[in-house]
Amino acid sequence: MKEIVIKASGVHKTYNETKVPVHALRGVDLEIEKGEFTAIVGPSGSGKSTLLNIIGGLDRPSEGKIEVGGKDISTLSDNQLIDFRRENIGFVFQAYNLIPVLTAKENVSFVMELQNRSKTEVDNRVKELLDAVGLGDRGDNRPAELSGGQQQRVAVARALAPKPTFILADEPTANLDSTSTANLLDIMARLNKEENITFVFSTHDRRVVDRARRVITLVDGKIQTDEHFKR
């Protein structure tokens, strides 16, 4: 039996910050199973980032329910959500968002230290992850000393560090050149296949879509298509 990692039921999101309410999501129902490599695509303003933020516990739905690993996160307080994200969700951001004053190693170890893991465990995992993303020799470099592609690979290693239930990547390749994009996608696809890690992307990038085994198209806050591919 397949393990459902993410389940969205009747998710609506309405922003009331302007005079005219903006309906970013209009009743999204979605289930993502463990080990999926899913891309959420759609035109600008279709609600991709909003859906990703809600799945990631960074934002709350106006209506509906989000379950992660069977737990309803819509009802958690802000502090509970922070703890939940730390233990269950890995984030990869478009702009890498590494901590500039820390080295690559320190950026990767940071979340594990927040989890109070032992030093030995942290050191071993950092080495393992930086090797996995091909940056075993750049651990002592700060983000400013790395290329965009290398920084994004460090971000992937950081997202994987706490052993999350799944990884959310918001436009991870938007700032990367073709070589770096291909490299990053190879790494993520390998981790997905070899370690059965669940990846959910929001993207405009055709190269990402072409590698995804499931592509969900959002239009005007609704799922228009949900396609599965054998890759």
Binding site: E87, F91, A95, V111, R158
Partner: peptide, 16 residues
């Protein structure tokens, strides 16, 4: 702000 947002996103709690 962006970095602090990221820290809270990845699990650094408010007390920290």
């Amino acid at each position: 702000m962006r970095e602090l947002g990221m820290l809270m996103a990845i699990g650094m709690n408010k007390i920290k």
